[in-house]
């Protein structure tokens, strides 16, 4: 479904992503784990075309997308739930969700998905007329995921959904992500620093360090890998 081929990305002269190849098949749950500054966010931003690569190609369902503007990429069915949420903080919860559904015309589908988001995160329903900036960090993350779901995407990209959250809230968010994985027919690409949360539910995972893919494998395999155990799981 998604193929990233030999992608290299620079910020000015600084190299952020170097020769990264990655693929995600329809229906898969794929994780990218790695420390701060590994290039995970840059990789995601390049896939959604907010950043242009210096070399390499990205294909979505056989169509080349790295040359398209970001809104065209969104139209193909890729929803990007960005790092640190990037909500419209001075707009209400409801308005943020509306923006997520910007590309859609199907009334019934939108209403259904809105109900789904409210079932998944009941607190958002309670606070639907509140400004997004007044929500707690965890609630804002819920809203960011909800906004991405409102697009009814084929590929849902979540960039570090647990960043900056308390342990309990992290678990709550990952329970919701597990539910999305089970109940929705959506392919998921997720990046995360906390490998212990994401590896158990991943079909496959990539380990990314200093801009490169260090290793890849099935989620369970990587959990048994000595290097991953020591470096990421703290075992």
């Amino acid at each position: 479904m998604l193929q990233v081929k030999e992608l290299t990305v620079h910020y000015g002269k600084a190299l952020a992503v170097e020769n990264v190849s990655l693929d995600v098949k329809e229906g898969e749950f794929v994780a990218v784990i790695g420390p701060n500054g590994a290039g995970k966010t840059t990789l995601f931003k390049t896939i959604s075309s907010v950043i242009k690569p210096s070399s390499g190609e990205i294909y979505f369902e056989g169509k080349r997308i790295d040359t398209l503007p970001p809104h065209e990429v969104a139209k193909l069915g890729i929803a990007h739930c960005p790092e640190r949420r990037r909500l419209a903080y001075r707009m209400t919860v409801m308005e943020n969700l509306e923006l997520g559904a910007y590309l859609r015309d199907d009334r019934e589908g939108i209403a259904e998905d809105l109900n789904y988001v409210f079932e998944l995160f009941p607190i958002l329903k309670e606070r639907k007329n509140q400004k997004a900036g007044t929500l707690s960090g965890g609630e804002q993350q819920m809203l960011a995921i909800g906004r991405a779901l409102m697009a009814n995407p084929r590929l849902l990209m979540m960039d570090e959904p647990s960043v900056g959250l308390a342990p309990l809230m992290k678990e709550r968010i990952f329970e919701a992500i597990e539910e999305i994985k089970m109940e929705r027919k959506v392919t998921i690409l997720i990046s995360e620093q906390d490998a212990s949360l994401v590896l158990p539910m991943s079909d496959r995972a990539y380990v990314m360090e200093t801009g490169k893919i260090k290793m890849e494998g099935r989620g369970k395999e990587l959990m048994d890998n000595d290097y991953v155990k020591v470096t990421y799981l703290g075992l």
């Binding site: 503007p69 970001p70 809104h71 990007h80 990037r86 419209a88 001075r90 923006l99 997520g100």
Partner: peptide, 22 residues
């Protein structure tokens, strides 16, 4: 108006929602 406000809030995020911000 809602879209214009979304651009003011975060242009990149608006683009990611599929809005042709230009």
């Amino acid at each position: 108006g809602l879209i214009l406000k979304a651009i003011k809030e975060d242009e990149d995020a608006a683009m990611a929602c599929g809005i042709d911000t230009t």
